[in-house]
Simulated scan of single mutants.
Amino acid sequence: MGHVSDILDGKGRDVLGIEGSATVHEAVARMVQGNVGALLVYENGTLAGIVTERDYLRRVAVQGRDERTTPVREIMTRELVYVGPEASIDECMAVMTERRIRHLPVLGDARDVLGIVSIGDLVKFQSNEQSVQIQFLTEYISG
């Protein structure tokens, strides 16, 4: 069974972030440029939350806020749901399903950011693992 650290080893540990004082427009532009659906939010260098496409839709688009003047800190999700690097893929999927989230930061013991995984990362990892198992079993049976 794989762990979230296995995913990070494969995809890299770079995480895009933004300051809470930045505008929502800047955050959306950074997400589009990075081809990601979430950014970690920092306040004075400290992790303060996460802003996602869903936050934008619920707290800006639907509420009619101005994305060019609204700071990220006003729309971000402050209750950060995260896992450690040794969390299993199944644990991560369970957390994401239960909490209805698509992005899961990976933090170390000192709450340092080690990476972030998306539901797509988890599904891709599981699919690759299953392909390897199928190939192994096919070779064993044919063998």
Score class of each variant (00 low, 15 high):
residue 1 M to N: 02
residue 2 G to S: 15
residue 2 G to V: 05
residue 4 V to P: 08
residue 4 V to N: 10
residue 5 S to C: 08
residue 6 D to K: 11
residue 7 I to S: 08
residue 8 L to S: 10
residue 8 L to D: 07
residue 10 G to H: 15
residue 12 G to C: 07
residue 14 D to Y: 12
residue 14 D to Q: 15
residue 16 L to M: 01
residue 16 L to K: 07
residue 18 I to K: 05
residue 18 I to M: 09
residue 19 E to S: 15
residue 22 A to S: 06
residue 22 A to N: 01
residue 25 H to C: 01
residue 27 A to M: 07
residue 27 A to Q: 08
residue 29 A to Q: 12
residue 29 A to S: 11
residue 29 A to N: 04
residue 30 R to T: 05
residue 33 Q to F: 08
residue 33 Q to S: 13
residue 34 G to L: 03
residue 34 G to E: 07
residue 35 N to G: 02
residue 35 N to F: 00
residue 36 V to L: 07
residue 36 V to M: 08
residue 37 G to C: 09
residue 38 A to P: 08
residue 38 A to T: 13
residue 38 A to H: 06
residue 39 L to H: 09
residue 39 L to K: 07
residue 39 L to S: 13
residue 39 L to I: 10
residue 40 L to E: 08
residue 40 L to T: 06
residue 43 E to G: 02
residue 44 N to K: 14
residue 46 T to K: 15
residue 46 T to L: 14
residue 47 L to C: 12
residue 47 L to E: 09
residue 47 L to A: 11
residue 48 A to K: 15
residue 48 A to R: 14
residue 50 I to K: 10
residue 51 V to K: 03
residue 51 V to A: 05
residue 51 V to P: 03
residue 52 T to D: 00
residue 54 R to V: 04
residue 54 R to M: 04
residue 59 R to K: 15
residue 59 R to P: 03
residue 59 R to A: 06
residue 60 V to A: 10
residue 63 Q to V: 11
residue 63 Q to W: 05
residue 64 G to A: 04
residue 65 R to M: 13
residue 67 E to K: 13
residue 68 R to F: 12
residue 69 T to Y: 12
residue 71 P to W: 11
residue 71 P to I: 12
residue 71 P to M: 13
residue 73 R to S: 14
residue 74 E to A: 15
residue 75 I to Q: 09
residue 75 I to Y: 06
residue 76 M to P: 09
residue 76 M to T: 07
residue 77 T to C: 05
residue 79 E to F: 05
residue 79 E to C: 02
residue 80 L to W: 10
residue 81 V to A: 14
residue 81 V to T: 15
residue 82 Y to P: 00
residue 83 V to G: 12
residue 84 G to D: 03
residue 85 P to L: 01
residue 85 P to E: 13
residue 85 P to W: 02
residue 85 P to N: 04
residue 86 E to K: 09
residue 88 S to M: 06
residue 92 C to H: 02
residue 92 C to G: 12
residue 93 M to I: 12
residue 96 M to P: 00
residue 96 M to Q: 00
residue 96 M to V: 00
residue 97 T to K: 09
residue 98 E to G: 00
residue 99 R to W: 05
residue 99 R to M: 07
residue 103 H to Y: 15
residue 104 L to Q: 03
residue 105 P to V: 02
residue 106 V to L: 05
residue 107 L to V: 03
residue 108 G to V: 10
residue 110 A to K: 06
residue 111 R to G: 00
residue 112 D to M: 01
residue 113 V to P: 05
residue 114 L to K: 10
residue 115 G to R: 05
residue 115 G to A: 06
residue 116 I to G: 05
residue 116 I to D: 03
residue 116 I to S: 04
residue 116 I to E: 03
residue 116 I to C: 04
residue 121 D to T: 08
residue 121 D to S: 05
residue 122 L to H: 04
residue 125 F to K: 14
residue 128 N to R: 09
residue 131 S to V: 01
residue 132 V to L: 14
residue 134 I to Y: 07
residue 134 I to F: 07
residue 134 I to Q: 11
residue 135 Q to A: 10
residue 136 F to S: 05
residue 136 F to L: 06
residue 137 L to Q: 11
residue 138 T to P: 01
residue 140 Y to Q: 14
residue 141 I to Y: 12
residue 142 S to K: 14
residue 143 G to E: 12
